[in-house]
Structure formats: structure tokens, C-alpha cells
């Protein structure tokens, strides 16, 4: 893979040309200023402007300024904001992964803090994604020239691909978390059952002392496990809800994302389709113009003919009656 950089050669020549051009223009300006008064003396009024014209066009600084003043269109800011939002979401997702693994570790505490952290993180990420998606839709709404709108469409597409990948990632993480959580829950249930079984054995021993009802110990255990399962239930619901939301985002985005390996993904196809659509548009426009013109002409002609006819009738009537 050989390459050759010709920039140095190019620069050298450009500078050479510039240095040639600069004295030339200054001398031209000098000569203009020296001849200026003469011209003014000869013809005071009309040539006044023309003698100054070369000066103003040769001045490089003003034209450069005029060029650099142009600001990018406002959608560029939008797209940048979306990009930063995506970046933030990515950071948050990595945080979330850490929190997930921490929450799944067996611990002595009840792990409420972990849960809360996971909840808030998930919510934040989902809202970030939602917001960027809404903003993404706005990106294509503004009007502009065909090239500009093409650029916008492509920016939108690439951001959509990013967003989609991100939300896929998030969902995969959530579903694995969910699965692990459920597994753990089942594990707990199994343990509880065994304990209950043991407990009931105990109970059979206790039968001699008291016939009815659970023991105090059993009641507290039951309550505790109930509470535990309610909490887990709530967590699972939470996750399921966010999965739903993500699915919605996915559906909205899939319209924008290009499938790889299809004809839509070909560079030449895209250029050709743009040029053909432009041509088609031109053709339609010409056709419309033609029909419009034709319609107006025909209307005009028919109305004139009708008018003529009416006038003729009036004339004949006038001849006959008077």
C-alpha cells in the first residue's frame, strides 16, 4: 500500500505563486494609485469607481472574512447534542453494568441501595434515549436545499445506528440481569421450601405441645419471605417496563437504520437514486408547467371565443331589431 504525499510540492508552488502575486498586486495598486489622479483629472465623475474596483477585489483579508463568517446551520448543534447524549448514555450503561453485577452478588444487607441505584440509572438512560430519539426526529423536519437535506438524512441515519446499538446493548444487559434475578429467586424459593419442610418436621415434634397455628418463628419467616418476593416482583416489573419502552424506541429507529449488505447500503446506488430522483422531479416540474400553461391558454382562448360569439349574436340582434 504505497502512497505519495504531494502536499509539500503543492504548498511550495502555492507559496511561490502567492509571492509572485503579492508584489504584482501591490505594484498594480501602486500604479493604480499613481495613475488614479490622472484618470480623475481626465474624467472626474464616471471612472471614479472603476479605478477603485481593483483595489477592493485584490484585498484578500476582506474576502477571507466574508467567507469565514458563515455559521453552520442550526441542526448541527442538534446533532452534536444528540451525540453527547449518546456518549453520556454509554457512560451510564457501563455504570449500570457494574451495579448489576454488584446487586447479583450475595450480600448480607438487603441490597436496597443497589436496587435504587439500578432503578435510577435505568430510568436515566431510558429517558436519555427517548429524548435523543425525539430530537433525532426533529433533525429531518427542517427544510433546506436537496444537498443539505441529504446531509441531514445521513447524519440522522448514523445517529440512529448508534442509538439502536446502544439500546440493544442496554436491553441485552437488562434481560440477562432479569434472568439471573429470576434464577436467584427460584433458588431462594427452593431454600425456603426446604426450610419450611424442616420447620414442619419440627412442627410435628411440637405437636405434642401445641396443636394449632404456626409458631411465632414460622410466622416471621413467612412474612419475611413474602416481603422479599413482593420486592423482587416489583423489580421485575420495573425491568419489564423498561424493556417495553426500549422495544418502542427500537421500532421507531428501525425505520431509519440501513440494513447492511442490501442495495440501499451501496454507495453508487445512493448517488444514482439521488440523481434520478432529482431528474424525475425536474421532469415533473416541467410537465406541471406545461399543463398549467396549456390550461391557462385554453381557458383564455375559449373565453375569447365565447365572448366573440356573444358579441356576434348581439350584433345580429341589433341589426335585426333596429
Amino acid at each position: 500500500m504505497a502512497t505519495r504525499n504531494r502536499t509539500v510540492e503543492f504548498r511550495k508552488h502555492r507559496d511561490a505563486v502567492k509571492s509572485v502575486r503579492a508584489p504584482l498586486s501591490s505594484s498594480a495598486a501602486a500604479s493604480a494609485s499613481s495613475t488614479g489622479p490622472v484618470i480623475e483629472m481626465v474624467s472626474l465623475l464616471p471612472s471614479n469607481r472603476s479605478s477603485y474596483a481593483p483595489l477592493s477585489t485584490e484585498d484578500p483579508s476582506t474576502s477571507r472574512d466574508a467567507v469565514t463568517v458563515g455559521l453552520p446551520p442550526s441542526w448541527v448543534d442538534d446533532s452534536e447534542e444528540i451525540a453527547t447524549a449518546i456518549q453520556r448514555a454509554r457512560v451510564k450503561i457501563s455504570e449500570l453494568t457494574k451495579a448489576h453485577s454488584k446487586a447479583l452478588l450475595p450480600s448480607f444487607g438487603d441490597g436496597k441501595e443497589d436496587q435504587r441505584l439500578i432503578e435510577t440509572l435505568t430510568q436515566e438512560i431510558t429517558s436519555l434515549l427517548r429524548k435523543s430519539e425525539v430530537r433525532l426526529k426533529r433533525l429531518s423536519a427542517a427544510s433546506g436545499s436537496s444537498e443539505d437535506s441529504n446531509v441531514r438524512k445521513n447524519v440522522q441515519r448514523s445517529l440512529a445506528i448508534d442509538l439502536q446499538n446502544l439500546s440493544m446493548d442496554l436491553r441485552r444487559k437488562q434481560s440477562t440481569y432479569l434472568k439471573r434475578l429470576q434464577q436467584q429467586k427460584e433458588g431462594f424459593d427452593g431454600v425456603d421450601l426446604e426450610m419450611n419442610f424442616n420447620g414442619s418436621q419440627f412442627g410435628s415434634h411440637d405437636d405434642e405441645f401445641s396443636d394449632v397455628g404456626f409458631s411465632e418463628e414460622q410466622m416471621t419467616k413467612l412474612k419475611k419471605s413474602e416481603q422479599f418476593s413482593v420486592e423482587r416482583e416489583r423489580e421485575i416489573e420495573q425491568v419489564v417496563k423498561s424493556v417495553h419502552e426500549l422495544a418502542q424506541i427500537m421500532k421507531d429507529l428501525s425505520v431509519l437504520v440501513i440494513d447492511q449488505g442490501t442495495i440501499v447500503d451501496r454507495i453508487d446506488y445512493n448517488i444514482q437514486s439521488v440523481s434520478t430522483s432529482v431528474e424525475e422531479g425536474l421532469k415533473q416540474l416541467q410537465k406541471a408547467e406545461r399543463t398549467q400553461k396549456k390550461g391557462g391558454m385554453i381557458m383564455c382562448a375559449t373565453s375569447l371565443v365565447i365572448m366573440c360569439f356573444i358579441m356576434l349574436v348581439l350584433l345580429i340582434l341589433k341589426e335585426i331589431l333596429f
Binding site: 441515519r157 440501513i258 449488505g261 440501499v264 447500503d265 454507495i267 453508487d268
Partner: peptide, 10 residues
């Protein structure tokens, strides 16, 4: 076109 795709360009 034969070696690069639109999505890669994006």
C-alpha cells in the same frame, strides 16, 4: 462502492 458500504461511510 465494491469495497465500502454506505453504513461504513456513515
Amino acid at each position: 462502492s465494491v469495497v465500502y458500504s454506505q453504513s461504513e461511510l456513515l
